[in-house]
């Protein structure tokens, strides 16, 4: 049933909200401490449990999947709700924060890839696998992209 999926999602989200509030109270802050993250962990655990028992049916997937697909539109609505007039007054902070972040992260990728030494490039992997199973490698690359 589709409602099972929606209910599962609702239970996990509520559980996260409650745990987050409790954690906030325990730590003495007026905040929901990590509630969304905790809810996600609950949902992943719930899914794992269902899969192991063979109870993950199409209805449950549809109930959760619909809301997952709805997330970007909801984020757009959220963005349309904010006090942007107030935010614009801060000037170029957004550009500086974002550019600084991207540069720092690019540098970290370069550093990690240098430190971890030589690895097979995508072209080399495909040349090797292509000799064995040409079609499979092709599908694996593109099939996952479409998803």
């Amino acid at each position: 049933m589709t409602i099972s999926g929606v209910a599962l999602l609702a239970i996990c989200t509520l559980l996260g909200a409650i745990l987050g509030d409790l954690l906030g109270m325990a730590l003495g802050v007026k905040a929901n401490v990590g509630g969304v993250g905790l809810a996600m962990i609950a949902l992943i655990a719930g899914r794992h449990w269902l899969v192991r028992r063979g109870m993950l049916n199409e209805g449950i997937k549809l109930g959760v999947g619909f809301w997952a697909a709805f997330y970007i539109p909801i984020v757009v609505a959220m963005a349309a709700n904010q006090n942007v007039v107030g935010a614009v007054k801060s000037g170029p902070m957004v550009a500086i924060a974002a550019t600084g972040t991207v540069l720092a992260c690019f540098a970290a990728v370069a550093l990690i890839s240098r430190l971890s030494g030589q690895v097979e490039t995508m072209d080399e992997i495909e040349a090797r696998e292509g000799a064995l199973t040409p079609k499979l490698a092709q599908q694996d690359g593109l099939g996952s992209v479409v998803r």
Partner: peptide, 11 residues
């Protein structure tokens, strides 16, 4: 709804 949808992506 925002938290609801974001949690759903973890599925």
């Amino acid at each position: 709804l925002r938290d609801f949808a974001i949690v759903a992506t973890a599925f």
